[in-house]
């Protein structure tokens, strides 16, 4: 009972945040509603027992990636978004399509997916076990993603630095 209550409260917050992201015209409001979505998703992870995933979700997603988004919005001083022709076509055809698809998927899931019930903390994912898995069963993917991150860092530095402008003169320090 309590489980269902917590699940539905945070699920509703989640969906409300996601819809608010779509409705808001200003990117900073969208970014903040996405932070709300991520925070309530962390609670859902906790309900499923994935404590480490929940913590990392808050630290990495809400605390780092979204801060980066907010930072870029502030840096570029992004204003209210303007609606143009392309979006009207997408709204006419895309949105109903997505809606129909979602309803279909939801119906299949609810009516005949054959999945059981889950209790609170159904599958605990303590950091120790996750770490063991990462460094044994998933060692190769782990190393590959580390290379990916390295490439991303270098790419970001190259892309965001002013094209053509020379490195500023080395001062002291």
């Amino acid at each position: 009972m309590l489980h269902l209550l917590v699940f539905s409260v945070f699920g509703l917050i989640c969906v409300a945040g996601a819809i608010n992201l779509l409705v808001q015209r200003h990117p900073i409001n969208s970014a903040l509603s996405l932070v709300v979505v991520m925070g309530s998703l962390a609670v859902e992870y906790l309900l499923l027992g994935a404590e480490f995933v929940a913590a990392v979700q808050v630290i990495v997603y809400a605390g780092a990636i979204m801060v980066l988004f907010v930072f870029v919005i502030m840096l570029l001083n992004a204003g209210v978004e303007e609606r143009s022709k392309g979006s009207r076509v997408a709204m006419l055809f895309g949105v109903p399509g997505v809606l129909i698809g979602t309803v279909l998927v939801a119906w299949v899931l609810l009516a005949r997916s054959g999945t059981g019930n889950v209790a609170v903390g159904a599958l605990p994912g303590p950091p120790k076990v996750i770490g063991w898995l990462l460094f044994h069963d998933f060692l190769l993917p782990f190393e590959v993603t580390s290379v990916l991150v390295l490439i991303a860092i270098m790419g970001a530095v190259v892309l965001a630095s002013h094209p053509g402008s020379k490195q500023p003169d080395k001062r002291e320090g």
Binding site: V35, A55, V58, G63, V67
Partner: peptide, 8 residues
């Protein structure tokens, strides 16, 4: 996690 949200 909580302190990293304080930056907002």
């Amino acid at each position: 996690g909580i302190t990293s949200l304080g930056v907002y």
